[in-house]
């Protein structure tokens, strides 16, 4: 992480021309992988939950592979400076920390389906209703002050 500034004048690492042959190979691989993921999605191995997990992991794995190809070759991350690589890894890594939220969703009761249908007689007025029916505002709140 500690680049001495004096050293940064030496290297010419930001200017690497990716050869066309590599770009073409990458493109072909990407198309093949896309076909593979479409094909894999048609499989139905069984109704057990682990088949579903496997199928999802497979689809995600193919997507990650494609993403790595794009990042490494099209975006040239393979030849990027260490600093750029740090941002690439850090950025994509950090977004997965948000999945810490699943600790919550995995350990609490969540029954949002019940009562989804609005009962007009008891529900508080929605702000969208107020435009059509200003009298609805009287439920539990004062009118806005002038």
């Amino acid at each position: 992480m500690s680049h001495d500034h004096l050293e940064t004048h030496d290297g010419d690492y930001s200017h690497h021309v990716v050869p066309i042959s590599k770009l073409i190979t990458t493109f072909i691989l990407l198309i093949v992988l896309m076909a593979a993921t479409v094909f894999a999605s048609t499989w139905h191995l069984g109704d057990a939950w682990y088949f579903s997990v496997f199928a999802n992991l497979l689809a995600l794995g193919i997507a990650v592979t494609k993403a790595l190809l794009v990042i490494s070759y099209f975006m040239g991350a393979k030849w990027a400076s260490n600093l750029s690589k740090m941002f690439i890894i850090g950025g994509f890594g950090w977004f997965t920390t948000m999945y810490f939220m699943f600790l919550d969703y995995g350990t609490r009761q969540w029954e949002p389906i019940k009562g989804w249908e609005r009962d007009a007689s008891t529900a508080l007025p929605r702000f969208k209703d107020l435009d059509e029916n200003p009298e609805a505002q009287d439920v539990g709140q004062q009118p806005a002050s002038p």
Partner: peptide, 18 residues
Amino acid sequence: HFVDLVWIFLFPLFYLIP
């Protein structure tokens, strides 16, 4: 390429739900 990357994930997540 980033715009492409996002679509690479959107495609299996919406169109190819296993």
